[in-house]
Structures are given as structure tokens and as C-alpha cells.
């Protein structure tokens, strides 16, 4: 974690995903693949080997028809803050400082040229957000010519992960500089690709600490929760669902224990 430059305002970017709105269409995944030059394999059926920065999981309540319910859960990197805004589990274990906590934005950085592939961070991450390049990325035919110049493609033997489209922050910042006020980065100036691609508007993105941003209101919603919240990883990604079984599926609860949002209701 580095000291913030004297002229920079600290931000804390985060995401709120409304699971009741998500239809599981996976448009976010497609948008992410093309935005971030994420490589794919000829045969993507072995999901353990595939690389993706956001992944849609399918949850079911396990009940037989007609009570069956399904919920789709899009999961990017949680950009954990750790205990005291700066110590996510993956950063603590990295022996190379290849991953670090970006204090001006609250985003966990990953410098792939620095990474030497020990995969400690992969083991430390409780969310499987980190993916390893077992092969050099290969793009079919002339697709190589259509890669985005804003995101450097990775190589064999390194870890990659979601960066909340950090290059879009760089671009917003650059534009703000050109317009004369580097701190003037509005909610619309910096949005991730998945947020903009989502057809049902399930994903909201912004500064969690800025009351003017939508995410500030949404994260304080009584039905907001985070994945495995009680591990203390302090993720910057919140989920919304009014369904109790979804809350239960996203953390380890004892049999007679109620998820926080619902426990209060009965008390």
C-alpha cells in the first residue's frame, strides 16, 4: 500500500449487484472478455481451466418442483479492503508485490509483468477470483488485431483478475486533467464494462463513500450483504436480494441461525 500523492483525493470504488434483477444472461462476462483482452480456450467446457474476470454462478434452493428457485450470481473480484483498508488476503501473501492495494481508489491492483506465478494469492482468495494462465493466450485468426490497447495482454505463468476496468479510471482521470480539474471524475465518467453491458441494470458501480453516488444508497439497503462477510475480508462488492435462501447460500450459517437482514426483522 502506497502513500496517496499529495494532489489526489482518496476514493473507494465498489459495486452493488441486485440478484433479484439478474437473469443469468452472462452479457457481463462477454463484455468483460472483450474489454479486458481476456483469453479463452478452444474448449471452454472445463471451467476449472478457463479464465474469466467475472463469472456467473447458478444457485438453487435445492427444493423439488414446484418450489424450485434459481438465482444467478455474477461474481467479479471482490476488491477486498481487508481489516484496515489496505490488507486484502491476496496482497498479504504476495511475495513479489505484484498485487497491491491501490489506496487512491480502493482497488486491488495486479501487475502481471511482476507476477512470477507462485499462485499464493490464488490460494489465499476465498472467492476464486484469481485465474492462472497455464498457457500463452492464443486468439483465433485475426482477432489479435482487435485487442484493446488499453489493457496489456497477459502471458503464460501469471495470475490475472478483475481490476474494475482500471484503464477506464485512467482515461477518466486523463480527461479530467485535460479539462483542468483532475479531481472532477463523476459517476458517469467511470463505469465498468459489465455495469454498462448489463441489460437488466442489475449492476451499479461507483464510489461507496460518496453520498451522491447510487451505490452509497444501495449498500445501505437492509437487504444488502456481501459474500462470506464474516471472514473479515471486507469486500467492496455488495449483493442485494430479498430472498432469504440466497442470503443463506452466500455465507456459512448455522442451522438455526438467521441471515442478518432477516434476523432483525423478527427481533
Amino acid at each position: 500500500m502506497q502513500k496517496i500523492p499529495s494532489h489526489t483525493k482518496a476514493r473507494h470504488y465498489g459495486m452493488v449487484i441486485d440478484l433479484d434483477k439478474c437473469t443469468g444472461c452472462a452479457t457481463c462476462m462477454v463484455a468483460c472478455y472483450s474489454e479486458n483482452n481476456v483469453s479463452f480456450r478452444d474448449d471452454e467446457s472445463v471451467k476449472l481451466l478457463s479464465i474469466n474476470w467475472i463469472q456467473v454462478y447458478k444457485l438453487t434452493n435445492g427444493k423439488p418442483f414446484p418450489d424450485t428457485e434459481v438465482c444467478y450470481l455474477p461474481q467479479p473480484c471482490m476488491q477486498c479492503d481487508g481489516k484496515d483498508f489496505g490488507h486484502p488476503p491476496c496482497v498479504s501473501v504476495c511475495p513479489a508485490v505484484a498485487t497491491d492495494f491501490d489506496s487512491p481508489t480502493g482497488i486491488v491492483s495486479q501487475i502481471t509483468t511482476r507476477c512470477f506465478g507462485c499462485r499464493y494469492c490464488m490460494a489465499a482468495c476465498p472467492y476464486h477470483s484469481r485465474k492462472f494462465n497455464w498457457w500463452d493466450p492464443v486468439w483465433p485468426a485475426d482477432m489479435q488485431n482487435y485487442l484493446s490497447p488499453d489493457v496489456s495482454p497477459r502471458m503464460r505463468g501469471v495470475i490475472e483478475k478483475c481490476t474494475f476496468c482500471y484503464h477506464r479510471f485512467q482515461q477518466a482521470r486523463q480527461k479530467a486533467y485535460a479539462e483542468g480539474n483532475p479531481e472532477d471524475i463523476g459517476e458517469d465518467d467511470y463505469q465498468t464494462a459489465c455495469t454498462q453491458a448489463c441489460p437488466s441494470g442489475a449492476i451499479t458501480f461507483g464510489d461507496l463513500d460518496d453520498p451522491a453516488h447510487e451505490v452509497y444508497k444501495l449498500k445501505n439497503n437492509r437487504y444488502a450483504f456481501r459474500l462470506l462477510e464474516r471472514l473479515g475480508t471486507n469486500p467492496s462488492v455488495y449483493y442485494l436480494s430479498t430472498r432469504k435462501w440466497v442470503h443463506r447460500a452466500c455465507d456459512n450459517y448455522l442451522e438455526n441461525e438467521e441471515p442478518a437482514a432477516f434476523a432483525n426483522k423478527q427481533a
Binding site: P5, V97, D102, S109, H167
Partner: peptide, 17 residues
């Protein structure tokens, strides 16, 4: 130069993509 001018060496993502 950044340390001199802005009092911070910056975080990795300032200069990397």
C-alpha cells in the same frame, strides 16, 4: 520525479495497465 513533485511514489496502477 513523482516523489519530488507529488510527495508519493504512487501505486502500481498509476503507471501500469
Amino acid at each position: 520525479c513523482h516523489v519530488e513533485e507529488t510527495d508519493s511514489q504512487g501505486s502500481c496502477f498509476q503507471c501500469h495497465k
